[in-house]
Design a protein around this nucleic acid. Structure first.
Lengths: 358, 358
DNA sequence: ATAATTATCGGTAACGTACCCGGAAAGTTA
DNA sequence: TAACTTTCCGGGTACGTTACCGATAATTAT
């Protein structure tokens, strides 16, 4: 309410108001030893009254903090991890008041080569690390060694819940599966069979997705029967072959949930058998090759895992902790976006050029 | 690769390497006048070679910028604007390197009292203003006066496209309507009639929503006929009464799209007539009172306009411009979230306590 | 009692940058 | 050549904070 002097109130103003020196105010504010308890409380009270807000720029200048952050991300599913990287970059570019150096390191695909990178970066003294645990149980000990030496670890896209990571950002995999089941159950009115096509049940939460799918199918769509679960191991040929095999065993499924980004071969196999309009399809992740199938109505819905947002959020969480020491939500579960024909245009901006799949 | 000396390379190191003074380096790096072109290019080359990265902490300390930002938001639709305010607050708290003072000002409801607030704040010299244009054409001249005196204006939740605002953040209203139409068209297989219930066709993009709804209904769901459009003017009694009248005229609509947050009275009217399970409902915005109806399946889908994200994004856009001078996307159209029974839990975190409606 | 130790506080350099001021060098005019 | 203008550059100060070194007062040991 005192709007007369909108001056900056710093440590110096507090010192003047209390009639003591700057050094003492600093000690009092930071619980450093060597200050009379009475003086300390008096300083805190005055700081409160004056509305003291520390100048973070000055602080990090004096401390000369230079955050070194490294991101370990696979090259494999480019349609997902490229936008994620972009999200990290954009968040890093928006940082002010402290210098951050972000290093990007890559390895072939999830669960292959990430451990070697972790070993290597244990030597270098990074302040924070961003990573996607391919096989959570395998990286737990590595994460512990990082956190013990003071390096904060944030998991993105996938989680290692039993590890000592600072935080985790990802979409909720189980709910992704549930959404797929609910959509199929709502659109399909009569009895029928559904199948799922997944990547690798051990990695990237595919297991969670299928659990959620099966559970919701049972409760919200009892008229649909889950007949088959296919693993493609992120191989296009395998996905194509497996889809053909599925159609052989079951010529007319009512719906298919593709929980991996590897959906193009599935579409091709369906198309060649004239099934494209006759089966309700739910796919995962967005990339250029998928657009025609969404626009034509061949795909009922696409569950978009928002890689850009994930990268941005993970980086912000890490920085917020390293710089200000505040710990945001330790576990953030984003809602996947449900892409339909009508809202597709809104997602075509930061679209990755193409899907590069091993 | 030169990992021998990971020292901080600053303006001083460049000066030493070039054998000139710090001041000259500063002038050269910032295109300030009074530098010999040859010296300038030499400095730039050395800076490039040494990998100079300006110390942002030192810069913002020296400049000691203090941003004064004001947000004009209505009290009315609390389920929407309270989370939006929270988003602004969180984004403001995450700002570093520059002190920002955010003032929140409120007025009764959209289109009432906002002009008076704008007039008042023309006197005070704010650096930026966040606002929701109730009636876009009315605020255009006020926005122009702000921008002419150097105050950046960002529109949030609604837009004034023909004004001189710096940027605009909102959900895509037309696509919101399209989503509603597509969902109804996909779920309803046989011929039938649908109705829409809106707030005020003049404000808050309700007109856009209905245009999108009607257009998509015609192309993607020709078996459905739009029979009626009701304006509730954000009054619960009117919404209740109008819904009853609708049922009187048309006892059994197949679907209803409620494009305003004012959906509780509609639900009550439907329930009292035993229509709850028999009509497919699509509502707008999320608040506590709506949860049971979503969980029970009485509502097919809820279009969530992500107020928290809108506030956060709008503030970030404004700050990014005021601090760094970079202009992000002038117009950001967020995708509304489609809330179903299965993904509802993900949206219950930052939920506003209750819906306060006129 | 004095000396030694501790508790409490004041003073100040430095972090890297931006900007102002004055001086030197070069060019221009009388 | 002298006086002046223009161009270019070096030196210095200040931003708010932290960390360190002394200085003084209070307490304890001898």
């Amino acid at each position: 309410m005192t709007d007369g002097t909108p001056k900056t109130v710093g440590i110096k103003q507090i010192a003047a108001a209390a009639g003591i020196s700057i050094g003492t105010v600093d000690r009092a504010l930071h619980n450093r030893p060597g200050v009379n308890p009475k003086t300390r409380s008096r300083v805190l009270k005055i700081a409160e009254k004056l509305g003291y807000r520390p100048n973070l720029a000055a602080r990090s200048l004096k401390l000369n903090r230079r955050l070194r952050i490294v991101a370990h991300l696979p090259r494999q599913i480019a349609s997902f991890f490229d936008p994620l990287r972009e999200g990290v970059r954009e968040a890093a570019a928006a940082i002010r008041g402290v210098t951050v150096d972000v290093t990007f390191r890559t390895y072939p695909h999830l669960g292959d080569g990430d451990l070697k990178l972790l070993e290597e970066d244990l030597e270098r003294d990074y302040d924070g690390i961003l990573m996607t645990p391919g096989n959570p149980s395998q990286v737990e000990s590595a994460i512990r060694r990082f956190t013990e030496r003071g390096t904060a670890v944030v998991c993105v896209a996938s989680d290692a819940p039993r590890s000592s990571r600072l935080a985790s950002v990802s979409v909720d995999a189980a709910i992704s599966g549930s959404i797929a089941a609910e959509l199929l159950g709502t659109v399909l009115h009569s009895e029928g069979t559904v199948a799922t096509i997944t990547g690798d049940l051990n990695t990237f939460d595919h297991g969670e997705k299928l659990r959620g799918f099966a559970a919701t199918l049972a409760t919200m769509a009892p008229h649909l029967t889950l007949i088959s679960t296919i693993e493609t191991h992120d191989s296009p040929k395998e996905a194509y072959r497996a889809t053909l095999a599925l159609l052989k065993r079951n010529p007319s499924p009512a719906g298919i949930y593709v929980s991996t980004a590897n959906s193009i071969p599935v579409l091709r196999a369906l198309e060649e058998n004239g099934m494209c309009g006759r089966v309700q399809l739910i796919t995962t992740d967005l990339f250029a090759e998928l657009i025609p199938s969404i626009e034509s109505g061949a795909i009922l819905a696409t569950l978009y895992q928002r890689p850009f947002t994930q990268g941005k959020l993970a980086f912000e969480t890490l920085c917020r902790f390293l710089v200000d020491g505040v710990q945001l939500e330790p576990v953030t579960r984003l809602a996947p976006h449900i892409i339909l024909r009508s809202n597709l245009p809104l997602f075509l901006e930061r679209l990755p050029a193409g899907l590069e799949m091993g």
